[in-house]
């Protein structure tokens, strides 16, 4: 009964409001104008420095663009050229290997760290802050330090390994070691942030779950396996995707630490884009690579969404 009168009231008010808005079309207009006035700065910078460049990147991939010259349409020439470029296979193969190395070294490691830090009864904050400190270090500065750590002559890493009888290695010059050596620097720089995210997620595990598991006779390792890890799976799957997306785009580390070398062992697609655009000044060709990268990453995230929704709807 009371809800009925309430509804009547509501519709009555609604019609009244509609009449009011017809009368106040001027206020409406000014309200919209002020809304767009506040949006305007963001719209301008997004149009000029994000949306237009994104569109231009796609447009330029079908054009011959060189500095100081009029752009001409060349159809799919840039893409045909790209597929014939020996660097294409090398760069994407490197990208794949970088991804595998980074997952191998850096995917489960932060999970383990987070589970253990969560377990600490003291100094939790100390570990958290120590692990994420490298996150704030500019790569260009980290590189100055790391290339001296890796230095084959007198570098501290070789000296430490010499103590346990491992011979001198050319970390960044050895075709076999350059990739894992770079990934080690990237892991050093990034694992703390990921661990922080896992720790935050572990805070939500209710303590009763651990108690219940314990009462059921689960050993501590079984409790990790059946309580902690399942709780982390959704975040882990997201981190897995974000890590791959980040590694595929990697530029600054190989650019500054190895400049793609030895040979082309650490040449990444992003570095090739840079080289073609800013050294050879062939912007159109570089854009074909850019578009390829956009497509690869979009297809990858769509594939992930698909698999993920299949998996979650199954369970």
């Amino acid at each position: 009964m009371s809800s009925h009168t309430f509804d009547q009231n509501l519709t009555g008010r609604k019609t009244k409001r509609r009449f009011a808005s017809y009368a106040n079309i001027r206020t409406m207009f000014f309200r919209q104008a002020s809304a767009y006035l506040f949006l305007l700065p963001a719209l301008i910078v997004f149009i000029v420095f994000a949306w237009m460049p994104i569109v231009q990147s796609i447009q330029m991939s079908f054009q011959d663009v060189r500095l100081g010259q009029e752009a001409t349409w060349v159809g799919l020439d840039n893409f045909a050229l790209m597929l014939k470029d020996p660097a294409f296979e090398i760069a994407w193969k490197n990208s794949l290997e970088f991804t595998l190395w980074s997952l191998l070294i850096g995917f489960l490691f932060p999970v383990m760290i987070a589970i253990l830090v969560r377990e600490m009864r003291f100094a939790k904050g100390f570990f958290r802050i120590v692990y994420f400190l490298p996150t704030v270090v500019p790569i260009a500065i980290a590189v100055i330090i790391w290339r001296f750590i890796y230095d084959p002559d007198g570098g501290v890493l070789n000296e430490i390994l010499a103590q346990v009888g491992i011979g001198r290695q050319l970390w960044l010059q050895d075709a076999k070691l350059a990739k894992p050596a770079l990934v080690a620097v990237m892991t050093w720089a990034g694992f703390g942030t990921t661990a922080l995210i896992y720790i935050a997620s572990l805070q939500d595990v209710s303590q009763e779950l651990y108690e219940a598991a314990e009462l059921d006779g689960a050993t501590p390792f079984q409790r990790i396996q059946h309580v902690s890890l399942p709780h982390l799976y959704p975040v882990m799957s997201l981190m897995f995707v974000l890590q791959i997306i980040a590694v595929v785009q990697v530029f600054t580390e190989p650019f500054l630490l190895t400049n793609g070398g030895p040979g082309r062992e650490t040449l990444t697609p992003a570095m090739h884009i840079y080289n073609r655009a800013f050294i050879r000044l062939d912007m159109g060709y570089a854009s074909a690579w850019s578009v390829t990268m956009i497509v690869v990453l979009l297809v990858f995230s769509l594939f992930y969404r698909l698999v993920n929704s299949r998996l979650t709807s199954d369970s």
Binding site: L39, A42, L43, F46, V48, F49, A50, W51, M52, P53, I54, Q56, S57, M60, I245, V248, Q249, F251, A270, I273, Y274, A277, F278, M283, A286, S287, S290, V291, M293, I294, L297, L298, S301
Partner: peptide, 24 residues
């Protein structure tokens, strides 16, 4: 417009770096 903003988070920045530089 919100979707337009969020779209830029899905495009790798290095992929439009060249035209961005030309714009600047």
């Amino acid at each position: 417009i919100t979707y337009g903003f969020l779209l830029t988070l899905m495009i790798p920045p290095i992929a439009y770096f060249v035209p961005l530089y030309m714009t600047i």
